[in-house]
């Protein structure tokens, strides 16, 4: 391969051969973890399993009035939220979608809603229920990481304008 050929091929290759955005891969892995954490909490709220909780107060949190929104258990909202993020992130790394600004911004929007809701739930644990559930804290950490991993979508969207 001559240097000139390499240069011209490199220039052409860059947009096409670029690997899928890493941040979306990270979001997909974190969202899948979140799906399982939420499923675990959902199974408990349905009375299927006890929670492994150690010295934390999972039962106090899970049996509080805040564990449901109307008739909907909060973990079910978690499964839906993490599941949607997982689907968006997986779509966003497919060759056809990897440059899609829409998917990236949708993912970021959902992550923003998720992190805001998680912050509210964490506030409830700290100030209202005054008890901590290790799985809720795990979920809060995961959602925060998802939000942080989604932030590069802003730069990507601005860059492509």
């Amino acid at each position: 391969m001559t240097p000139s050929a390499a240069t011209s091929v490199g220039a052409l290759e860059r947009p096409l051969l670029r690997p899928p955005p890493r941040n979306r891969m990270v979001v997909a892995v974190l969202a899948l973890m979140g799906v399982f954490v939420a499923l675990y909490l959902l199974a408990h709220s349905m009375g299927l399993i006890p929670l492994v909780c150690g010295v934390w107060s999972c039962d106090t949190v899970q049996s509080s009035q805040w564990a449901k929104v109307g008739q909907v258990p909060v973990p079910l909202i978690g499964v839906a939220g993490y599941g949607s993020l997982l689907v968006l992130a997986l779509l966003g790394i497919q060759p056809f979608w990897k440059d899609s600004r829409g998917i990236g911004l949708l993912m970021l929007g959902l992550a923003t809603v998720g992190v805001a809701y998680t912050a509210f739930l964490t506030y409830l644990e700290a100030a209202v229920i005054q008890a901590w559930c290790v799985w809720c804290v795990t979920s809060a950490v995961l959602m925060t990481l998802i939000f942080l991993a989604s932030l590069p979508e802003v730069g990507r969207a601005v860059q492509r304008r």
């Binding site: 290759e13 051969l17 690997p19 899928p20 891969m25 892995v29």
Partner: peptide, 13 residues
């Protein structure tokens, strides 16, 4: 071809 290029990373993912 793109998948093949970013293949190692994608496979790892």
């Amino acid at each position: 071809g793109e998948v093949a290029s970013g293949g190692a990373e994608t496979t790892k993912f």
